[in-house]
Design a protein around this nucleic acid. Structure first.
Length: 574
DNA sequence: GCCGTTTTCGGCCCGACTGTTTTCAGTCG
């Protein structure tokens, strides 16, 4: 899929045009197009062949041509020309907090600066402050921005930040005079990575709330302190913005601060069509406020049903909402089982008994214990003789346990040549076989794709674990033709995993949505090696919800008997 | 550059804050 490649080029073109000082609406057109292409669940090349590009929202005749050019040549002549006019290095300047396109343009044109080192030098020599429109304060801010830029490790995984935000909410609820309190922003949308924490509060004593916030033990630096807005930097190096609003504006503010920006723009455009205006204080008809207390009210005012936060990305939820065709998203409490857990038999730390207890505490009724297969020695791959001991132990435990059942599973390696890591007569005995790639990441796209395809065709395989192999912030997905994987999974009725470990989340939201649209069953697995991480199943559900999945799309909503029946069905049809 | 049961041209989301200004441009979310 070349979707990402097209989106990247459009985003860069947008940034370069911005620095050039081009029409901001032209810039926005490229940004919107990039976003639309990136969120596609079909191959942009496929759409091009069918001549359907200009049917996409935000893509007209011109951008359709440009997409075709990228697909044909691998680049875009406009982009190549822009790079000659504007040094592409300047694009990184835009990532420095406080620097926008206009300032970058001035710095480049007046001083010929093209690198961060030169920029820093110029600030220290006070050359920046002398530029028109700049001053000593701006100069200091740029230096501070450069420091932050160098320190920043980028966006942080949801799984690292959400627990922290929830802890802040708990403390404030218990020890400060808040009335309503909620996490907003991309955390509330459960985006896989987040840039900051947004907290929204109503209170009659905002000063006391803000005071309590800056006293929190994990606050490292107070960036701004006010009655309605306070910003701090928390110890893991993440900014937290807290806002206090009137109860009457709660819904409008929550919608506003939840975003996404693209979603909010579309909602406000709808409002304009109806002669209304939306801001963070409410929905207004002229000077009269007609809604704002709840999010439902705000959406209703523009003719939309409530849209779950996970869908608010301008990926078709507005259109679906207007038509009354929003999905009934799978709920967190509809999950009955965990499809991928490691035990002491391989590199997990928990015994089978402990897994059962924890599952019961979490209200799950089944857990597939999928330890690594024999050749993955670094991860304690289970030799065949131990495999059958594990099977006997699980059968014993299941006899004694009414509420929770374990499923005898294995995460079987797909070897470099595409064969599986146990012989067929062994695989046949394993109730749930989830196949995975752990070696040979450097192979070509064709090789890796073929390995997964042959696993999907294998009669004893039920599912593929973490299909793309990406690890957030550490490793990109391996080269893979997902379109072919989807076709084959669909053909054989096999499942693909949504790995819920917060650094994997693989399939991701867009790919999981593509699989769902093709009718491929999805299974959520925590892939946990530590007992407490069984709780992370929620991150997988979040991906499923962001992928527009309903309960019927997710195998984990089946009860134990139903899931066993699915496992057998896959074996029988093969 | 896109888009249209008011429009094929003239619109295109909204407000807060900051800093550099003496009324506003730039940045941010």
């Amino acid at each position: 899929m070349k979707n990402k490649q097209v989106a990247d080029i459009f985003n860069k073109v947008a940034a370069l045009l911005e620095i050039k000082g081009e029409n901001p609406y032209r810039v926005r057109a490229y940004q919107r197009a990039a976003q639309v292409i990136e969120a596609l669940t079909t191959d942009v090349e496929e759409l091009a062949k069918q001549g359907r590009l200009s049917k996409l929202p935000g893509i007209g005749a011109d951008l359709a041509q440009k997409i075709k050019e990228i697909l044909r040549t691998g680049t875009l002549s406009l982009y190549e020309e822009l790079k000659k006019e504007v040094p592409p290095h300047l694009l990184t300047f835009l990532e420095i907090p406080g620097l926008g396109p206009k300032k970058v343009k001035a710095i480049y044109e007046k001083l010929g600066i093209t690198s961060i080192e030169e920029l820093e030098e110029a600030c220290k020599k006070h050359k920046i402050a002398k530029l028109p429109g700049f001053g000593w304060k701006t100069e200091q801010n740029i230096l501070k921005g450069i420091k932050l830029f160098r320190e920043k490790t980028g966006r942080k995984p949801l799984g690292e930040i959400l627990p922290l935000a929830e802890e802040v909410v708990r403390i404030l609820t218990e020890t400060s005079p808040v009335e309503q309190i909620a996490i907003a922003g991309s955390l509330r949308r459960r985006k896989e990575t987040v840039k900051d924490i947004d907290i929204l509060i109503t209170s009659t004593r905002p000063h006391d709330v803000m005071k309590r916030i800056v006293e929190l033990e994990f606050v490292e630096e107070v960036i701004a302190f006010g009655e309605t807005k306070t910003s701090v930097r928390l110890r893991p190096g993440i900014q937290m913005d807290v806002r206090v609003v009137e109860p009457d504006s709660w819904g409008a503010a929550l919608a506003y601060f939840t975003g996404s920006k693209a979603h909010n723009i579309r909602v406000r455009e709808l409002a304009l069509e109806k002669g209304l205006k939306i801001n963070e204080y409410g929905v207004f008809k002229g000077d009269k406020k007609i809604a704002g207390k709840t999010e439902e009210e705000v959406y209703e005012a523009v003719g939309l049903p409530f849209i779950p936060p996970e869908l608010r990305e301008d990926r078709g939820e507005i259109e679906a909402g207007l038509k009354g065709e929003l999905p009934k998203l799978v709920e967190y409490d509809e999950i009955k089982g965990d499809g991928h857990v490691h035990s002491k038999y391989s590199d997990g730390t928990a015994s089978l008994e402990e897994i059962m207890q924890k599952a019961e505490a979490l209200g799950l009724s089944w857990v597939a214990v999928c330890d690594h297969s024999q050749s993955l020695k670094v991860a304690g791959g289970v030799p065949i003789k131990d495999l059958f001991e594990k099977k006997r132990r699980i059968e014993e435990l299941n006899k004694r346990s009414k509420r929770v059942k374990l499923i005898f599973g294995s995460e079987v390696d797909i070897l470099s040549d595409g064969s599986l890591d146990y012989p067929d007569d062994v695989l046949k005995e394993i109730e749930f076989v989830i196949a995975a790639i752990h070696t040979g990441f450097q192979q070509s796209e064709e090789q890796i794709t073929n390995r997964i395809l042959s696993a999907l065709r294998h009669p004893f395989v039920h599912a593929i674990a973490h299909p793309t192999g990406r690890v957030i912030g550490e490793r990109d997905a391996y080269e893979l033709n997902l379109t072919k994987i989807f076709e084959e999974a669909k053909k054989y009725g096999k499942a693909l995993e949504i790995n819920a470990y917060y650094k994997r989340l693989d399939l991701n939201d867009i790919n999981a949505r593509a699989a769902k649209e093709r009718g491929i069953p999805l299974i959520i697995g925590t892939d946990t090696h530590f007992i407490d991480q069984l709780e992370y199943i929620g991150f997988g559900v979040a991906v499923a919800r962001r992928a527009w999945c309903e309960a019927k799309d997710i195998l984990n909503t089946l009860n134990y008997e139903e899931f066993k029946a699915w496992l057998e069905k896959v074996r029988n049809q093969s």
